[in-house]
Simulated scan of single mutants.
Amino acid sequence: MAKRVLILGAGGVARGMAALLTKAGHVPMLWSPSGRSTQALRSLPLQVSGALDGALRIAIAQDLQTALHWAEVVVLAMPANGHRATLDAALPHLRADHGIIISAQLSLGGLYLHQALAARGVAALVMAWGTTVVLGRCLGEDGVQIGGLRARVEVAALPDTRSDEALALCHALFGDRFAKAESIVAIALGNLNPPVHMANALCNLTRIERGEVWANYDGITPTVARLIEGLDGERLALATAYGVRVRSVERHFRDTFALPEHLSLAEMAAQIHARRGGPPGPTDLSTRFITEDLPFGIVEIITLAQHIQHPTPLHEAGLTLFQCLCGRDFRAENTLLPALDFAAISGC
Rank of each mutant, 00 (worst) to 15 (best):
P159L: 12
L6N: 00
S107W: 02
H310M: 08
S286E: 11
S37Q: 12
A157N: 12
A14I: 06
D160I: 14
R120W: 03
D232F: 01
V153K: 08
A166G: 15
G219D: 05
P282W: 10
L231R: 09
A90H: 01
L304R: 02
P28E: 06
T312W: 01
D255I: 01
G175L: 04
A128P: 02
A118S: 15
G190H: 04
N204D: 06
V48S: 03
G318K: 02
A118N: 10
L285K: 14
L340I: 09
L202P: 00
R57T: 14
F330H: 02
I301C: 07
A67G: 09
E165L: 12
L117R: 09
H98Y: 10
G347C: 14
D232G: 08
E141Q: 13
R235A: 07
A332E: 09
L158T: 03
F342M: 12
A172G: 12
A59M: 08
I102Q: 04
T240K: 13
P313T: 06
L173K: 03
L135Q: 15
L336S: 03
P194G: 07
F296I: 10
D293L: 04
Q47H: 14
G99S: 13
V196T: 06
A124E: 05
I345H: 11
A14T: 10
V224S: 05
A344I: 14
T223E: 07
T38A: 06
L231W: 06
N334C: 11
